[in-house]
């Protein structure tokens, strides 16, 4: 019994080490963003120098706004398209359903390097070109599979008899969807939308291949700055990005988890 107890506490200790490994670099980066020394000297000389420098950096701010617009457009489009497809999968058994569901995997399973370069080649070839519109095209494709997975998971706990009941009480198919099915799915929809936003907002590889020197998103600008060499403002903007995406995912977790119980 005693041995079992020590093993369990060793396990807990190991888990704590893993969390340290996962969070250490992020915490170090966040702390350094408050260090006024551009050479990351220690001990930290606390200041908001890099955040105020960031406020003056129009390049990074423009890129940030681009990221935001692309992510919002992606969220809207992917949530609507993905939810519609999930409804069809939920309600009907039809020929080719398996094939359609299998088609969701290429955007997730093929390395983004290959997806991104093939989009670059294709968009260039047919004249769509590069830029924010091309990024939205690409990001929506990446987000749709995630939306379908999240919404379908929520729909699985929905009792189809509710739809039958609504129909037998005289509701049209449209009313049934709008008044019965979608309200039930709402937590799943919110989680899916947040997910889609995060997929787009954090996306680097696809955006990198579809950006032009003038028009890019925040991750692409950050990458360019890292490659050029040292810019401590990057610490500040990276800390902000990490904070935003973690907040988003806590949001997803809240709606995704508690959704099943409501």
């Amino acid at each position: 019994m005693r041995r079992r107890y020590t093993l369990a506490s060793f396990g807990r200790f190991y888990l704590a080490l893993m969390l340290l490994f996962l969070y250490l670099p992020i915490v170090v980066m966040a702390l350094m963003s408050f260090n006024s020394s551009p050479f990351y000297r220690l001990p930290i000389d606390w200041s908001l120098t890099w955040y105020s420098a960031l406020a003056q950096n129009s390049r990074l701010i423009d890129a940030g706004l681009n990221s935001l617009w692309v992510a919002l457009a992606t969220t809207g489009l992917a949530t609507v398209l993905g939810t519609a497809a999930s409804l069809a999968f939920f309600r009907y058994d039809f020929k080719g359903k398996k094939v359609l569901q299998l088609l969701l995997f290429p955007p997730i399973a093929i390395p983004w390097l290959i997806i991104g370069t093939s989009m670059l080649v294709f968009f260039f070839w047919v004249g769509i070109g590069r830029g924010l519109h091309a990024m939205v095209l690409g990001h929506v494709a990446l987000a749709i599979p995630y939306v379908i997975i999240v919404v379908s998971a929520r729909l699985r706990s929905f009792d189809p008899h509710l739809e039958e009941a609504a129909r037998s009480l005289g509701a049209t198919s449209w009313q049934t969807t709008w008044r019965v099915t979608l309200p039930w799915t709402a937590p799943g929809l919110v989680a899916a939308a947040l997910f889609a936003f995060a997929v787009s907002f954090d996306q680097f590889v696809i955006s990198y291949f579809l950006s032009t020197p003038g028009v890019s998103t925040l991750p692409v600008e950050i990458y360019t700055a890292i490659r050029k060499g040292f810019t401590p403002e990057i610490n500040a903007v990276s800390t902000i990005i990490i904070a935003i995406s973690m907040a988003l995912l806590l949001g997803v977790a809240r709606f995704y988890r508690f959704g099943g119980e409501r």
Binding site: P25, I26, V28, M29, A198, F201, D202, F204, P219, I222, Y223, I226, I234, S238, I241, I242, S245, M246, L249
Partner: peptide, 11 residues
């Protein structure tokens, strides 16, 4: 699920 690029940079 947070930004992959930023996490690599943080290392």
């Amino acid at each position: 699920w947070s930004n992959a690029l930023v996490r690599i940079f943080s290392w």
